[in-house]
Structures are given as C-alpha cells and as structure tokens.
C-alpha cells in the first residue's frame, strides 16, 4: 500500500506521460480519411493504468489528460468530443475487465471502438443530424485497428510491469 502523496505523484507522472503521447500524436500526420479517427496513443497510458491503478484514479487521469491536451492542442469543442469518447471508452473497458473474460487486447479494442462511438454520439447531438451514421462502418473498423495496436503494445508494457502496482 502506497502513501497517499506517492500515489498523487504517480498520478502526475502518468498524466504527463499521457500528455506527451497526445503531443507525439499531433506530430504524426496520419489521416485515415475518416473524421475523428486517430491512433489514440494516449490510450496506451489509460489502458495500462487501468491494470495498474485504482479505477477512480484512471478516471481522474483520463479527464485531466483530455482537458489539458484539449487546451494545449485543440479547442473547447475537441475537449467535449474527447471527453465523451474517453469516458465512454473507459467505462466500457472497466466493465469488460471485471469479468476477466477478455485479455488486454480485447479490452483495448472495445475501448477504441467505444471511444469513436462516444464521439459520434456527441457529434450527432451537436450538429443535430443522424446522417453522421454514414461514418459508423469506418469508425468501427478504425477503432478496432487502433484498439488492436494499442492493446498489443499495452500487453507488452504490462508484461514488463508485472511486479509494479501503482
């Protein structure tokens, strides 16, 4: 059991790490041709934290990460989208992790897919149209692919962090 202030310090370090991943992501000019689809490198930190930290801490990490990276790299609308995607994604991942029926890869895929679904729902709400549903196939496929990549990376990270629990 770690001291409260030690936990806080680790939370700060993880937040910084997630922010750096968000920054690195802005440097990668990958356009998948689908609006809203991106690699989601910061999710690597969230998925890893999901296995290594308390759930409420992961929520704090997720929200702080989204708000800060939105203020630095995006705008207030992008914060809204990322927040919806991030929170829905984290909730689904946490729920799937409970049953222990999925490996980190499956959980990450679900996270990637629901991140996109959350953003799509907010987009539907903001622009008041259902025609955005045209993007569903692309966003689902993109979420699966990026989730798979992040999941495999997280699996490798967790393998090397076996004896560490934050």
């Amino acid at each position: 059991m770690m001291l409260w202030r030690t936990r806080t310090a680790f939370l700060g370090v993880f937040t910084a790490l997630a922010l750096i991943f968000s920054y690195v992501e802005t440097l990668i000019p990958i356009s998948l041709g689908i609006p809203g689809a991106k690699l989601g490198l910061a999710n690597l930190v969230i998925v890893t934290a999901l296995y290594k930290m308390r759930l409420q801490e992961v929520y704090v990490l997720s929200v702080v990460r989204v708000v800060l990276s939105g203020l630095i790299f995006g705008n207030y609308i992008s914060i809204l989208y990322s927040l919806a995607g991030g929170l829905l994604s984290l909730t689904v991942m946490a729920a799937l992790k409970k049953g222990d029926r999925f490996s980190v890869t499956g959980i990450s895929v679900a996270g990637g897919v629901f991140h996109n679904i959350g953003q799509l729902l907010i987009a539907m709400f903001i622009v008041e149209t259902f025609s955005i549903s045209y993007y569903i196939p692309g966003l689902l496929a993109a979420g699966t692919v990026t989730g798979l990549m992040i999941g495999i990376l997280s699996g490798q990270m967790l393998k090397r962090l076996v004896n560490i629990q934050f």
């Binding site: 499956g106 895929v109 692309g138 689902l140 076996v162």
Partner: peptide, 24 residues
C-alpha cells in the same frame, strides 16, 4: 498476468467488424 489473446477477444473483434460490415 496473462496477456495473450483470448477466444473472447477474437469474438469481440469479429462482432464489431460484422456490425461495421452490416452498416456499410
């Protein structure tokens, strides 16, 4: 900790892609 891919993972990916295909 087991980090290998489980049967359920494959099933999940398959379902998501099936939904995507159906929507398309």
């Amino acid at each position: 900790m087991n980090t290998g891919i489980k049967k359920n993972d494959i099933l999940l990916i398959f379902i998501v892609l099936a939904v995507a295909g159906l929507a398309y």
